[in-house]
Design a protein around this nucleic acid. Structure first.
Length: 213
DNA sequence: GCTATCCGCCGGTATTGTCA
DNA sequence: TGACAATACCGGCGGATAGC
């Protein structure tokens, strides 16, 4: 990955020499960085669904790629990504806008104010070079999105897995509470579970390998 | 080598501002 | 007034490092 990972810098006084915000040290102290002491954001952790569809920097490439196709503003980019993943992944504004600002600061994008005071971004020559240098990453990202679409269209697979796990837990708990298992049965069950784990790991390995293609 | 802790970073939600 | 656009704050993951 050639794009450097800079910290979002909201003119925060808790930034270090590299512009990194030291939120990690104490979020309590950090509250009210913008002065005024006025409560603004009330972020409460991660939402449901896919937590991180993109790896480090992937989102930057995705944004560059979308803007290369058509100059867009922030909200439009969010919608494009949502459509591309069939609604499975919707990047939040807190991700998109700092990313756009960062890419502009790096010289990969340039902006102009258009109708309704929207900030429309388009790719610069540097941005095009950056995108060309990361074509492989771009391909991987679009494959991930295609896979997300397939999952979305192929029914709720994770729900099936959850139900199976639930039944499995209930079965074991029932047997164990009633102390109906002898040593031989216990070993048999352990062998079945280990076998299942191996098979699941094999499936996972295949998926990971196809991701890296 | 293993475990615990620190802290940088990503990305989520809440909120505010703007405009038709 | 509601939808869109942008900003601010903060939770959690994971790499780096320290302590054992």
């Amino acid at each position: 990955m050639q794009i450097h990972s800079f910290r979002h810098n909201y003119n925060c006084p808790h930034t270090d020499d590299h512009g990194h915000c030291r939120h990690g040290q104490s979020h309590e102290k950090h509250q009210g960085c913008q002065g005024e002491g006025k409560h603004r954001g009330r972020g409460r952790g991660r939402g449901k669904g896919l937590r991180r569809l993109f790896d480090h920097g992937d989102l930057h490439i995705m944004v560059l790629s979308l803007v290369a196709k058509k100059p867009s503003y922030g909200y439009e980019i969010i919608k494009h990504i949502e459509e591309a993943s069939s609604g499975l992944y919707i990047p939040s504004p807190g991700v998109i806008y700092p990313t756009l600002t960062l890419l502009e600061e790096q010289g990969f994008l340039e902006s102009e104010i258009v109708e309704r005071n929207r900030k429309s971004f388009r790719l610069t020559a540097e941005g095009q070079q950056q995108l060309d240098a990361n074509r492989e990453t771009e391909q991987i990202i679009f494959r991930k999105l295609a896979k997300a679409r397939d999952l979305q269209q192929g029914g709720n697979l994770s729900e099936d897995i959850e139900m199976a796990v639930h039944r499995f837990k209930a079965l074991l708990r029932h047997k164990m509470v009633l102390k109906q298992l002898n040593e031989q049965q216990t070993q048999q069950i352990a062998a079945i579970i280990n076998d299942a784990i191996k098979q699941i790991e094999q499936v996972n390995t295949l998926l990971t390998a196809s991701d890296n293609d």
